[in-house]
Computed example of a mutant assay.
Amino acid sequence: MVSSPAGRIHLVEQGSGPLVLLVHGFPEFWYSWRRQMPVLASAGYRAVAVDVRGYGRSSKPEDTAAYRMLDLVEDNVAVVEALGERTAVVVGHDWGATIAANSALVRPDVFRAVGLLSVPYAPRGGPRPSEVFARMGGEEEFYVSYFQEPGRAEAEIEPDVRGWLAGFYAALSADTMPAAGAPDPHFASRGGTLRDRFPAGRLPAWLSEDDLDVYAAEFERTGMRGALNRYRNMDRDWEDLAGFDGSPITRPSLFIGGTLDASTTWMADAIEAYPATLPGLVSSHLLDGCGHWIQQERPEEVNDILTAWLASLPI
């Protein structure tokens, strides 16, 4: 545990050498990097995976506004400093990719390179995010809007955390996601729930029953509010980051996405804009037939890409 502006941040550390900070997404915690940490340590890096504020063993402030992006960036800075380092490479998946990107954008003095998994970098800009998401889906409701209403998603998830997580992980995994043309699990019908569209009865190949038990036990212990509060700060982030409107990330960068991940396909324009928005991009990879949980679905490929990229960076 280390001190942060919000209280305490839990971390798991392996290895020594240059620091690589690993940041998870929703609904996960440090455990999502279990297949990367030993490999990075063996390659000579100090691999540190955190529980993001609101998750796992980290502090969970009561105030929803305490989960804004700039606070999460400062948490990452606090981790680097508490570990006795001046700089780090930051790598994130899902929401962690957005946190990592903003860490490199806002504090390039600390984060010397950034790796993004699944969610591309898109500079701040455009209308207020809540307005954008409210217009998506027509007669249906986009999952981000669904999550933004305090208490609503908690009421769906918390009576059966294990079952909900199993369905959510399966819905976005390559081998278990709904077939083309089936109702999209990123949307809920008006008055319905997201779970109505989750596949049932089979776990994705990357997720064992024991792994699911680990995830479920942690969220059963903590509840979901801290994790969901990230979604409830997107308008605050848009306001806080106004000074970075349209700004590129100039630090050396990496992107890895899956061809079956909606985060990649919906944001294809963001990937195409990388020459302008990520001018320091070292390599970009789309893994064929891969879904959203990329470092768990395809750990060997991700590990090979990560270690090759890290080796290419200046010390």
Rank of each mutant, 00 (worst) to 15 (best):
L72M: 10
P252Y: 02
G44W: 13
S284T: 07
W266I: 04
P275H: 14
D175I: 12
P38C: 07
R221Q: 10
D51I: 00
E297M: 10
Y146W: 10
D235Y: 08
S173T: 12
E62L: 08
G167K: 15
A122Q: 14
A153V: 08
E149L: 09
S3R: 15
V52W: 00
L287M: 13
G192E: 11
F26T: 09
W309E: 04
D109M: 05
L203A: 05
E28H: 15
P123M: 11
P5W: 13
Q148G: 09
E156A: 10
E297F: 14
D288V: 07
A6E: 10
S103R: 09
P275N: 14
M234F: 14
G44F: 05
M267W: 04
T265I: 09
W164P: 00
Y146P: 00
R202N: 04
A182Y: 10
M224E: 04
D51H: 01
M234K: 13
V161K: 00
D240I: 03
L105M: 08
L21T: 01
L72Q: 10
A276S: 12
R236M: 04
G126H: 12
F142H: 14
D261Y: 07
L287H: 04
L116A: 03
D184Y: 13
A66L: 06
R232F: 05
A180C: 04
R34W: 11
G137Y: 11
A276F: 04
V80G: 07
T307F: 11
P185K: 13
V77W: 04
D269V: 07
L19Y: 11
E301Y: 02
E218V: 13
E272R: 15
P199R: 09
V302N: 01
L313Y: 09
D75E: 05
L194A: 08
R128A: 05
A134F: 08
V89S: 02
V106W: 03
G96A: 04
R53L: 13
F219A: 04
L117Q: 04
R128N: 01
T265V: 11
E297H: 12
P183Q: 06
F255N: 01
G246Y: 08
T87G: 03
H24F: 12
V106H: 02
N102Y: 15
D109P: 08
S253T: 12
G181M: 11
R195W: 08
R230G: 06
E209K: 15
L212T: 02
R195E: 12
E140H: 12
V161M: 15
A200W: 06
S247E: 14
L105D: 00
T87S: 14
E239R: 15
W266V: 05
D245H: 12
V20K: 07
A171V: 03
E220S: 09
S58Q: 04
P27D: 14
L207W: 14
S16M: 02
G25H: 00
P248M: 08
G54N: 02
S4V: 03
Y67A: 02
A65V: 05
R107Q: 07
E140Q: 15
D213C: 08
L19M: 05
L254D: 00
C290P: 00
E81H: 14
